[in-house]
Nucleic acid binder design. Structure first.
Lengths: 356, 356
DNA sequence: GAATTGTGAGCGCTCACAATT
DNA sequence: GAATTGTGAGCGCTCACAATT
């Protein structure tokens, strides 16, 4: 490994002071034009890059943000939800020159990251944050640490939270199902340890009731593909009379679809299936689902964090959901079986769904 | 923001030297048992975390690794391939306490990251690395920088590369198709700027020829969903006689499936479709594809990088691919249309496919 | 002499202030 | 006095070596 070039090396070669080089490289206007030119030319020649650790130490800023995904299941990364979230975050972080440190540890040490100055701020996926852990995060935020949560339980705290209003999407789905003649639904929930999953289940039931449908059965899953398949098998074994199945997320819906296909049950002929998230594969499979703009969620979170880092007050824009009808809830026989015809376009379309 | 606790604070409170505290915290055996206990207790009480920048500066190691995904398309993150790769990398990096800095910039400055000491080593997705950029990476590696590439063109360089042998998978797919009676195939390639995509196209053609099938047409895509759909529309418009379509990756295959469904063409009745990668949605959709163990690829890459960081010589285990027959290449009418029955199990099964 | 602790320099920057033209 | 450059301390650690019991 070649010894790295330092500020002092440049200064020695040019016969100026370290600080002059430092200023010239940062484009400080109080440095003479010719000096600056000389410095920058030499820096280019020697391929000089300021040492990040030294800079971080003096500036007391790491220039890095952390993305924390508490691993509630093995499937954090496998869920396309994550990819889309990261893409949104990245699209805002990149122009701001803020590299992203990711963690999906079982018990992520974000406090350590912050305390050690490894990152200047955090975005935490808060879908399953509760109790002590949530309080810890709130305390951090209250003490002035730049922390933004996605989907953390909303409460009157100083923790900036980005989330979306699920109401419109859930209601839209249920109205659609009621119109198709469904009267009985089954709800498949995410892990009961997640406040977010519980809210979703309650939301599905509330929306169903509002359009006159009855929830016959609630099956608990854990947001994974496998649990969706298992839930479907349970419902089939019970010979449920529910003709519409409302899932806590798309991943479980995919699992349910596979189990239904394996059992030879027709979708949407025998059972209608609706998911939540509208992740990429949903359009491919033709899954009817509730679009929540995961990418936009990531963008908003990063924008909010960036504001906090500049000591500004973030104004996260409230996102709204909407129902996206596709094959799995179409009137039986209307669409060809494998048609993933999504009226809304392809899977990568990420419409900006904002209010105000 | 509360002022952070430093080593000096601890030392002052305990009436010992900074270095003693430093050693005690690192568990240095030459520190007395009681001193160590006192130090560690106080550190716990004050929630002390050593400053990462200061530590990195003195140790000359950042304790961070970089993951670079040159963004050849908008869809790096949207491709589930990425999630699975990151999951593999993360599963090895986490126990080694190496946080991961990710970048998917259009022109990622990995040299800068390395030069600035922001990361100690890099994993670079090299599918589209060529020419000058590839040479730059090779130079870095030759000079002793810990760099591991995934899918970089193999050549006798010092650049450690993790990849998989595509032969068995491609041949397996073609044998399967030939057995089903297919005689004419069409190949849809990834971007021509990618050596990896070109090798794939050549591989499909070679394998087809070997089992006696003829490649009637080659259509160029760019590895995205949309380009797969566009390629399918092109083939349909041309009324190709090819009954088996071989795609450069799963994402394009998903696009092709959607376009075929939209056109009312039956799969596999009229056309058989085969992808490559075996990413999560493949099993859901029932896409016949070549499994390449993306997760394992990530694990191997991280293991190799970890070896380099310890100045060891990495021994990446060669991975092999295998064909996974599913619905889209099944004998017409054999499987129910929506059956995503994968003989190999669900989408999250990631069998370790290793030789030796 | 072995076990334990302290001293002091240095890692490579930035920033306030002083000094020069 | 305005424009430009230099001085020196300090950020918070670690490590070689010295000093103490």
């Amino acid at each position: 490994m070649v010894r790295k070039v330092t500020l002092q090396d440049l200064a020695d070669r040019l016969g100026v002071a370290r600080s002059t080089v430092s200023r010239a490289l940062r484009g400080d206007p109080q440095i003479g034009v010719d000096t600056r030119a000389r410095v920058q030319r030499l820096a280019g020649e020697l391929d000089y890059h300021p040492n990040a650790a030294a800079r971080a130490l003096t500036r007391r800023r790491a220039g890095v943000v952390g993305l924390v995904l508490p691993r509630t299941s093995r499937f954090v990364f496998s869920n396309p939800y994550f990819s889309e979230l990261l893409e949104g975050i990245s699209s805002v972080a990149e122009p701001a020159e803020l590299p992203i440190l990711v963690s999906a540890a079982v018990r992520p040490d974000y406090v350590g990251w912050l305390r050690a100055g490894r990152v200047d701020g955090l975005i935490v996926l808060g879908s399953s944050l509760e109790g002590e852990e949530l309080r810890l995060l709130e305390t951090l935020a209250a003490k002035g640490s730049p922390v933004v949560s996605i989907h953390a339980p909303s409460a009157p705290t100083s923790l900036v939270t980005v989330t979306s209003d699920e109401g419109p999407g859930l209601l839209g789905a249920c109205e659609h199902l009621a119109l198709l003649g469904h009267e009985h639904v089954a709800v498949v929930t995410g892990p009961p340890t997640s406040h977010y999953a519980r809210a979703r289940a309650a939301g599905w039931k509330g929306a169903s009731a509002r359009v006159g449908m009855t929830t016959l059965r609630t099956v608990h899953g854990d947001d994974t593909f496998a649990s969706g398949a298992a839930a479907a098998r349970t419902l089939l074994a019970e010979r449920t009379a529910a003709t519409a199945w409302l899932l806590g997320n798309d991943l479980m819906a995919f699992g349910a679809l596979q189990a239904l296909a394996d059992a030879g049950v027709r979708v949407p002929g025998d059972v209608a299936v609706v998911g939540f998230d509208d992740v990429m594969p949903a359009a491919v499979v033709g899954l009817s689902t509730v679009h929540q703009g995961v990418r936009t969620l990531g963008e908003e979170a990063m924008r909010a964090l960036h504001a906090l880092l500049r000591s500004a007050t973030p104004q996260p824009i409230p996102l709204v959901t909407r129902f996206v009808p596709r094959r799995t809830s179409a009137p039986s026989g209307l669409a060809p079986p494998t048609a993933a015809r999504a009226a809304e376009g392809g899977p990568f379309e990420t419409p900006v769904t904002r209010t105000r």
